[in-house]
């Protein structure tokens, strides 16, 4: 079976890879590129653990073909921090205990960052509906929502 040659940009770096048509972007990230921060909770777009940005749109990497990434700009959880400094969301999640097991955390962080890029002062309701596609079974969402709201407020006051 011929593989497709793909050139893409991930977290600011150029990548090339070969993929089978049926491989999803999530398969490629995890299996071919060893970027294991994006998690597979369902592979059907229902849990959000594989949330990534593709050309500035929040998507589930499990619902994108690897081949579709050609010429695209992909951002994953591995690209949230820069050098040794964490994204304020990452730091706030640690400070407020907004994670327990941590499996949903990469996807939640990518999704929350996307929200704050689009909406500087989201309401609690807006945060909750924006994150409705990111399932978390441990936290009951309370501390996640608080962390996102606090980071938004601190960014506004900065």
């Amino acid at each position: 079976m011929p593989k497709t040659h793909i050139s893409t940009q991930i977290n600011g770096d150029s990548y090339e890879f070969l993929c089978n048509t049926q491989q999803t972007l999530l398969d490629v990230l995890r299996q071919e590129l060893d970027l294991k921060g994006s998690k597979e909770g369902c592979a059907t777009g229902d849990c959000g653990a594989c949330s990534v940005m593709m050309d500035d749109r929040l998507v589930c990497a499990c619902l994108v073909l690897g081949a579709e990434a050609d010429g695209k700009k992909i951002e994953t959880v591995e690209g949230l921090s820069s050098g040794s400094s964490l994204d304020p969301l990452q730091q706030k999640f640690i400070d407020l205990a907004a994670l327990q097991c941590g499996i949903c955390t990469p996807g939640v962080l990518v999704a929350a960052r996307a929200l704050l890029e689009k909406n500087k002062s989201p309401s609690e309701e807006e945060v909750r509906f924006w994150l409705a596609g990111n399932l978390c079974r441990c936290t009951g969402y309370d501390k996640i929502v608080r962390a996102v709201l606090e980071v938004a407020a601190e960014a506004r006051n900065a």
């Binding site: 929200l115 994150l131 596609g133 990111n134």
Partner: peptide, 9 residues
């Protein structure tokens, strides 16, 4: 239709 992520596609 679906989540924010689904909306993106």
């Amino acid at each position: 239709i679906g989540s924010t992520q689904i909306q993106g596609r």
